[in-house]
């Protein structure tokens, strides 16, 4: 008898930028693009989180679709004809970067994000045109940094509202639900209930929100303090993988070390024990080795 593979997966044929591409059924356009070496910018997408497709920087043009579609969550269909670098795509990506840049402080954003801004020749400053009488002056999300505990700070001036922290705090990882998107429209923000300080909230300081934040809006207090003092220097930092010293789960920690001190702890997103997530002890409980 012939063996029948149990996990039979259909192949889907489509065209991306004129190239014939074959992918397994269920593949997203983002993965399909990646499979043929097309680099698609993303912001709210992360392998270990459910795609929320809110940032819209990964949009692509699909033939016969009235509007552009988000590559991160749209599944490839047979016969699809996809353009990833058309005029419309370039325009939308550029504008999304410009809109974010015009309202959010991107000074500590991930380098890839800043590179994408350049790649699409985004000029966020062109929205800075309030007239002499103040008519139509530009709104931004600028606000004071929230420092309400010793472990991490929240600077929502840097928040692009990518929803990643909410997902990591919620059903995608921690299931603590300490934060959610509150308000609406341009005034929407990430908040605890009634914006109460973190120590009064449900927060358990796993720091998984920091782990997924792409802009540094959520930051270790240690990093924040060093940046304030002007001593933060990533060029002097090393990153070493090791295993958490606490319970027996065996979470991989990436120790970011500067001047023989741990300054930040992350975990690799592609590790199937942690998927990038830690608890308070793994994330923040390292100080004991440097109370020297």
């Amino acid at each position: 008898m012939e063996a029948v593979p149990l996990n039979f997966v259909r192949a889907v044929d489509l065209k991306i930028d004129g190239k014939d591409v074959r992918v397994p059924e269920g593949t997203t356009l983002l993965q399909a693009c990646k499979s043929v070496g097309i680099d698609t910018p993303t912001l709210c997408y992360l392998e270990n989180l459910t795609p929320v497709n809110v940032c819209r920087v990964c949009v692509v043009e699909v033939e016969n679709s009235r509007v552009l579609v988000p590559a991160c969550s749209r599944v490839a269909e047979p016969g699809m004809v996809v353009q990833t670098d058309s005029e419309r795509v370039r325009h939308s990506r550029k504008l999304v970067f410009e809109l974010l840049g015009s309202s959010v402080d991107l000074s500590t954003a991930e380098p890839t994000f800043l590179a994408d801004l350049e790649r699409y020749a985004a000029e966020p400053d062109r929205f800075d045109t309030g007239d002499a009488h103040g008519h139509g002056a530009k709104a931004t999300v600028k606000q004071p940094v929230k420092i309400d505990n010793d472990l991490y700070v929240r600077d929502y001036s840097k928040c692009v509202l990518c929803y990643k922290c909410v997902e990591a705090c919620g059903t995608d990882a921690q299931n603590t639900f300490a934060i959610a998107v509150a308000g609406r429209g341009f005034n929407a923000s990430i908040a605890t209930e009634f914006d109460t300080p973190l120590p009064d909230s449900a927060c358990v300081y796993c720091g998984n929100c920091i782990g997924v934040c792409p802009t540094g809006a959520l930051m270790f207090k240690s990093e924040h303090d060093m940046r304030e003092a002007g001593t933060w220097d990533e060029s002097k930092q090393t990153v070493t993988d090791t295993i958490c010293p606490y319970c027996g789960v065996g979470c991989t920690l990436q120790l970011h070390v500067q001047d023989n001190s741990i300054v930040r702890v992350t975990s690799p997103h592609d590790h199937d024990v942690t998927e990038g997530h830690l608890c308070i002890k793994g994330r923040f409980g390292w100080q004991f080795v440097q109370n020297r």
């Binding site: 358990v204 010293p245 319970c247 923040f284 109370n291």
Partner: peptide, 18 residues
């Protein structure tokens, strides 16, 4: 408890709001 560990020798090193 979540934020502490055994006799606290290690976890005593960091400040936890919990």
């Amino acid at each position: 408890r979540l934020e502490s560990f055994n006799t606290g020798v290690m976890t005593g090193g960091y400040t936890s709001p919990l």
